[in-house]
Design a protein around this nucleic acid. Sequence first.
DNA 1: CGCCGACTTGAATTCCTTCAAGTACGGTGG
DNA 2: CCACCGTACTTGAAGGAATTCAAGTCGGCG
Lengths: 249, 249
Amino acid sequence: MATVPGTAPQARTELDLLIGKLDRLNRLDAADLKAIRGLPWRSSEYRSNHYLVREGDVPTHCCLLLSGYACRHKIAGDGGRQIVSFHMPGDLLDIQHLQLDRADHNVETITAADVAWIARSVLRRLLVDNPRIADAIWRDALIDASIFREWVLNVGRRDAKKRIAHMLCEFAARRDAAGLGSPDFFELPMTQEHIADATGLTSIHVNRMLRELTSEGVISREGRSVRITDWDLMRRVADFDPAYLHAAA
Amino acid sequence: MATVPGTAPQARTELDLLIGKLDRLNRLDAADLKAIRGLPWRSSEYRSNHYLVREGDVPTHCCLLLSGYACRHKIAGDGGRQIVSFHMPGDLLDIQHLQLDRADHNVETITAADVAWIARSVLRRLLVDNPRIADAIWRDALIDASIFREWVLNVGRRDAKKRIAHMLCEFAARRDAAGLGSPDFFELPMTQEHIADATGLTSIHVNRMLRELTSEGVISREGRSVRITDWDLMRRVADFDPAYLHAAA
DNA sequence: CGCCGACTTGAATTCCTTCAAGTACGGTGG
DNA sequence: CCACCGTACTTGAAGGAATTCAAGTCGGCG
């Protein structure tokens, strides 16, 4: 878990994913880029299944995922886990802590991951001084909320196969929009248990449904790699309409 | 559906609920109050089950609920409806349209309601000019997102009785926090079908679970009025912890 | 080479849905 | 005033999607 102070500008290509994302949300100018690149932050490496934030924490820093994958989740009274979002490199994991003092959910790595920590106060100042960045980040937070709404629909009103297919579509579409690779073929970072906890199912049933999606020719699999063999069919099976992601046209 | 231009300050007690809510989220000063009271808006009355915003719309105005109740919902491909939030007087119903151009869900009245419409551009200017108001509104939006996360958990990982009980707890707690009345006894504005569509169940099963909650002495009912007879038991049955509402201590 | 986590498969069970009636209530018009 | 109607609510029985329980396989790693 080496800690690297980020000082030299040329060492900060890690921020390029975030900058690209914010620029897509709201066109940034040179001053904005300079402000982001000048942010003081320190990064740490973590193994898979490491808690970055725990429910109840009073965070002093916000975290940015530089590499690897993470999720946010809540634990029910009976111990059941509900994953509420998946995250990929370039995502801010807990931007709500700019305004809310206490964490209402957990943030945990799924794979090994590099995370940049930025002080809350520094980030707040950045937003006050750079309205374009502020707008971009608020848009990001509001899209986050839109995704939660779609997840409520997914878990509340779709059957198991559609839920899983929809989750795969969303992962592919967001990955594509973030410039992280093709939406047709990709390696899933999450286990079938992660998928189960995100879709409100058991991992056993996820396994069966993935099998069915495969046998029906919607996807093909090799290990954790997935190929969406028929996107047209997939969209129908998953009831997937990417409008809720509010990705730039 | 009479339309009343809001011009005379003394006619604007309708805004007091919103002002109270924002002040609770982030202490406002006299200038803030003046700015809010000076907002140009027009209000309309609507019957129950009236669409205020439709998925796909490009809204020019944001709406504020002055009286009555409303919900936001999405429709699945098979026609199933998923309600993603309930709203009460004083709530801004679609603040995300400050930043996002296209509605990703519907907003519909549950009861007869008075709604104030405020132009997007006017609201944006208000937030730029009044940072305290901006912070309050962003906090509100982030709490909204927190509630969505809890709903994902509710629908994904709790059984039918817990889901319904949790929804009742949330309604009571938010109503109480907004100063709209006691959390122990209240009239539900929504039908059992609304409850079903919010919890991912059928109205038939909602009916049976309400019956069970009643026979177990957790609640008592008369028409649509509900009394929570044993809050301690209710919290346990519902797996309810109000921390996610981020209500001021 | 043996162990552990992730994945796979089958059978029994359960919670919730679907289907099918029927009741209660408020509003409307004859 | 009351018959009529529509909406919301209630109840029972049958069916089904997903869970639970129980084994067992596969692959990577110490």
